[in-house]
Computed example of a mutant assay.
Amino acid sequence: MISRTDDAVTTRVEQVDPASLPEGDVTVAVDHSSLNYKDALAITRGAPVVRRFPMVPGIDLAGRVIESEDPLYRAGDRVLATGWGLGETHWGGLSRMARLSGRWLLPQPAGLSSRQVMGIGTAGFTAMLCIMSLEEGGLTPASGPVIVTGSGGGVGGMAIMLLAQLGYQVTAVTGRPQLHAYLTRLGASEIVPREALAPTGRPLEKIRWAGGIDVVGGDTLATMCASIQYGGTVAACGLAESMVLPLTVAPFILRNVRLQGVDSVMCPRPRRMAAWARLARDIDHTLLESMLHDAPLADAITIAPRILAGHVRGRTVISMA
C-alpha cells in the first residue's frame, strides 16, 4: 500500500478488509503479479505514476475469478489484466485480491500458467505490440537487422527473444557488459554499448538497421531514427532516458522512416487479444524461464529500487502464495 502525507510517501505491506477493495464487477484471487519499471517508480517515489492515494501498485495481475457480474466471466475462470490504470488510478495487482472492471480482463492464453503469463506481463505484451508495429510497417527478417535498446530490462529482453524466434537478426544495446552472455542466449547476434547511439549533431547517420525498438527516448531514440534504412520503422514505447526527442525531420522526409508510438495501457481489447495469441504461440518457454526471477510479495518493496538502479535483469514475478 502506497500512502501519502503532507511531507512523505510511504510504502508497506499491510492487511486490509476485502470490503475496502475499489469498485468493479469482477473480483479476482491473484496468483501472481510482476514488477515493471513503472511499478518500481510507483513503489519508490509515488507520484507521478500514482495519481490517487492510497494505492495498491502493480500494473499486472493473473489469477482466478471469485465473483463476477460481467457475463464474459464466471467463478473459476483464469484471467489476466495489464494496464488500464491498474496501480495508477485503480488498485493494482500487488495484492492477493483485486476488484476491477471485467472489460479490463482477458482470458489466460491456453498453454501458459499464471506464473508464465506474469513472466511475460506488460513487458512481453509491449514488446509484442512493438513487433506488430514493425511488421505493419513492412519489416521482415529479410529487411535487415533490428536494434533494441534497454536490453537488460523486461521489454528489451522480451523483444530480443521474440524477434530472434521470428528469424530476425537482432542488435542489443546495453551499458552492462556482464549481460553479454545473457543477451546472446536470448538471441542477440550483435551487442553494442550505449555509446553507439550517442548524439553526433548530424541530422542523418550512417544507415545501420532496418528497424528498431526503443524504450529510453531522448538522444538514444533520435540517433536510432537517424540510423534507420530507407522505409524502416522505429517503435517507441518508453522514456527511461528522457521525454525530450532532439532530432530533425531529415530521417522522415529523406529516408521515409516511420516513428510509431506504442502504448500498452489503453490498448484496445481486439489488439490485446491478437498480441497475447502471438505471445502464446511464439514464446520460447525455456528462454522465458531464463529471464524470470521469483519473489514473494513482501520483497517487492526492496526489489523496486534495484530495478531503477539497473541491478535487475529480465523479469521479476511476484507470487502471492
Rank of each mutant, 00 (worst) to 15 (best):
S189Q: 09
T223F: 11
L254E: 10
G157I: 07
V192Q: 04
Y182V: 00
T233P: 03
P199W: 08
L179Y: 01
G167N: 06
T200Q: 10
I160Q: 02
P268V: 01
A250N: 10
P268D: 15
L239H: 11
L245C: 13
D263V: 12
C237K: 09
A159P: 00
L259S: 06
M266Q: 13
V192G: 02
A235T: 10
I160M: 08
S242W: 14
G238L: 09
E241S: 15
C237H: 08
E241R: 15
Y230D: 12
T248F: 14
N256I: 03
R176G: 02
R194K: 09
P177L: 11
A210Q: 10
I253E: 15
R258F: 02
V173A: 07
R269V: 15
P203T: 05
Y182L: 00
R269E: 15
T233M: 07
A210C: 04
A250K: 15
G218T: 08
D214P: 06
E195I: 14
C267D: 09
V262P: 09
V216N: 01
T248I: 07
S227W: 01
R272D: 15
A240M: 10
R208W: 05
N256M: 13
A236L: 11
A181I: 00
L259N: 08
R202L: 12
R272A: 15
R255Q: 13
Y168H: 04
V262C: 09
T200M: 10
T174H: 02
Y182C: 01
A198H: 10
G217Q: 07
Y182I: 00
L163A: 08
D263T: 13
G232W: 04
A226W: 05
R208H: 09
R176E: 08
F252M: 12
M158F: 12
